[in-house]
């Protein structure tokens, strides 16, 4: 039996990066509780287009929680009221009939607004470009399991690698800090032998880039970890601190 709800949406509208933004309120009727939050946003945009109004701009891509493209700060939380999901995995059954839902963009100096709910997260790409890779000489394909790696290290590296770079950590942080993201990217390589080769340089360069791009200083509140759709652990931040300080001592 399909259940439907009527909702009011308070959505941040902003014509461009420099334009002054404001909240607009829209009413939506008969939204299936089985639909995802982004499907609901699609319905809103269909409605706006049919009324001859400009649709709401928001980021989305894979819609299965792995690309890191969707964002949205919904009712006081990045990715909305559910835990360990991205906005595209959030369902309308998490909302009540008649509820007013406030939808805002990520707010952080490091993520300037492009339009409406879309923010510029290219700062994350710049941080990755500063060292979030390993250098491999081309040649024959090496054997898959030629280098022995402890199970624990492989598991922890995999957990860190599950970061999709959505930016919820920055959006949740009272300091606008990107430490959880950077620590995940440093950790998943630092834990593996292939990543050790460039570990010191990577930690130095990625932290320097993060600072340069205007992200804040981590004060270990842990809000990032709570809101991370992938459950990236604060232990990664301790590892990043370790990697960075060790790298600086070696200089």
């Amino acid at each position: 039996m399909e259940k439907t709800i009527n909702i009011k949406l308070r959505v941040w509208r902003q014509a461009g990066p420099k334009a002054k933004g404001r909240f607009e309120t829209y009413e939506l009727k008969n939204i299936s509780t089985d639909s995802s939050f982004l499907e609901m946003m699609d319905i809103l945009n269909e409605q706006l287009i049919s009324e001859g109004k400009e649709p709401v701009a928001f980021d989305h891509d894979c819609r299965e929680g792995i690309c890191g493209m969707c964002s949205l700060y919904i009712n006081g939380r990045p990715h909305g009221p559910d835990d360990r999901v991205t906005t595209c995995q959030l369902h309308m059954r998490k909302f009540k009939d008649g509820e007013t839902i406030t939808v805002e963009p990520w707010r952080s100096a490091g993520f300037p607004i492009i339009k409406d709910l879309i923010v510029d997260r290219s700062a994350f790409d710049k941080i990755i470009a500063a060292g979030g890779y390993i250098s491999v000489s081309t040649g024959g394909v090496p054997d898959a399991n030629a280098i022995p790696i402890p199970k624990e290290a492989a598991d922890e590296a995999m957990d860190a690698a599950s970061c999709i770079g959505c930016g919820a950590c920055v959006a949740a942080c009272k300091n606008g800090s990107a430490m959880l993201f950077v620590s995940a990217k440093v950790s998943h390589l630092a834990l593996l032998p292939q990543g050790r080769v460039e570990a010191a340089r990577r930690a130095r360069n990625m932290v320097a880039k993060m600072d340069e791009l205007g992200f804040g200083n981590c004060t270990n509140t842990g809000a990032c970890e709570v809101e991370c759709p992938k459950g990236i652990s604060l232990a990664n931040i301790a590892r990043l601190n370790r990697e960075f300080l060790k790298a600086k001592l070696k200089e």
Partner: peptide, 15 residues
Amino acid sequence: RARGPERYASGKKTQ
């Protein structure tokens, strides 16, 4: 400063 001038209208409900 890193946080930016705008605050969230829907507050912070992170548990």
